[in-house]
């Protein structure tokens, strides 16, 4: 029996990135919502809702980057230089966001407001940067002889600015949903209000991005059965469950917000992200660098992929196991003001 190693690995990396987006998505969302909180005490509570888990969540990003290097080095070597500036922006934003968790507790009269701003600004800029990378990625990357051959600002376009706005709104929805789940009282109410607004923004931006994608990128439109000369009903029907899933997510989140549910707004937001992610996957497969490199072309040698597969078969269940355990341990409402019971 021989395993299709590149296929296994493209699935694993896709799942790792999806987990990152969902998990750090709500962390970054909390940061994006930081400026709207009523008081510093509310901000302490908001931070306490993610403080025990954010570091583990961010590790999925390291796995996404490290895993891409390890499994699809040719893609890694093209994507990273192509998105040099937004990736550097993301890294520096994540530095400010990450140290703020501890620094905010140590800051005094000037320090605390500074690190509060750094947390909010870092989260916002990291989301923007990720959205710009996403937009640039969908636009495609100039590759010659296996290396990036474009300019430093190729990723910047009205389209990528639109996707960046979409990512910010999406993370805000996840953050608000998480806050609704983890908070009580007035802050819980604020969370619901933020979730409602974010939901409207997400619905609008998701629609706009989807439409823009079909218009700007005929290759993707064709993939979905919407290309020239006409609509390919059979093709569209196969893909239709994905946008329907997105609509279901929006409806679920909307229903949850309307009913004041504690968990549904987050669950709905997660479903929206899942559908968007699946939509991208369907649009690009088998490309890992759109229109330039397929996952088979970019795959590492079998000896590397098989060794890592042995490692991941042993380690991934353990990672998922203790991650779930840590979430279970810190289940329930976050303590007001940041103390832990």
């Amino acid at each position: 029996m021989s395993l299709d190693l590149p296929l296994i690995w493209v699935t694993l990396i896709a799942v790792a990135v999806m987990l990152y987006v969902l998990l750090d998505g709500f962390d970054l969302g909390i940061g994006i919502l930081f400026p709207f909180a009523r008081s510093d005490e509310d901000r302490d509570t908001m931070m306490a809702a993610i403080a025990p888990v954010w570091d583990g969540n961010e590790t999925w990003l390291v796995l996404g980057g490290g895993g891409l290097l390890a499994a699809f080095p040719a893609a890694y070597a093209v994507v990273m230089p192509a998105f040099y500036l937004p990736i550097m922006l993301m890294l520096m934003a994540l530095i400010l966001r990450g140290v703020a968790f501890e620094f905010r507790l140590h800051g005094r009269k000037r320090g605390k407001p500074f690190w509060t701003a750094a947390f909010a600004g870092g989260s916002f800029l990291a989301a923007i940067a990720q959205g710009l990378v996403l937009g640039g990625f969908i636009q495609g990357v100039t590759v010659r002889n296996g290396a990036f051959a474009g300019g430093p600002f190729d990723w910047l376009s009205p389209y990528s600015i639109l996707t960046a706005a979409g990512v910010v709104a999406g993370y805000a929805l996840l953050g608000a949903g998480w806050l609704v789940w983890k908070s009580e009282g007035e802050l819980h109410g604020d969370g619901l209000r933020w979730a409602r607004r974010a939901l409207v923004a997400v619905a609008a931006l998701l629609g706009a991005v989807s439409l823009a994608t079909l218009i700007v990128h005929p290759q993707i439109a064709a993939r979905w059965g919407l290309g020239h000369p006409g609509v390919d009903i059979a093709r569209l029907a196969v893909h239709l469950p994905i946008p329907l899933l997105g609509l279901a997510g929006l409806a679920l989140a909307g229903w949850g917000v309307w009913k004041g549910s504690h968990r549904l707004p987050f669950a709905g937001g997660a479903v929206v992200f899942l559908s968007g992610y699946l939509g991208l996957a369907v649009s690009f497969f088998p490309y890992v660098v759109p229109y330039a490199l397929t996952f088979r072309q970019a795959a590492n040698v079998d000896s590397a992929l098989s060794l890592m597969l042995i490692g991941i078969v042993i380690l991934l269940p353990a990672i998922l196991g203790y991650t779930v355990w840590v979430y279970w341990l810190f289940r329930g409402k976050a303590p007001a003001g940041g103390g832990y019971h």
């Binding site: 403080a51 590790t59 490290g66 590492n300 890592m308 490692g311 380690l315 991934l316 203790y322």
Partner: peptide, 26 residues
Amino acid sequence: AAPIMGPLLAFEVLAAFFLEASFLGV
């Protein structure tokens, strides 16, 4: 170098970073 360096770095993430990050919270 990725055919060799890649797995070594990936093992660092899988075997160490997740462990540290998760149990640091605890």
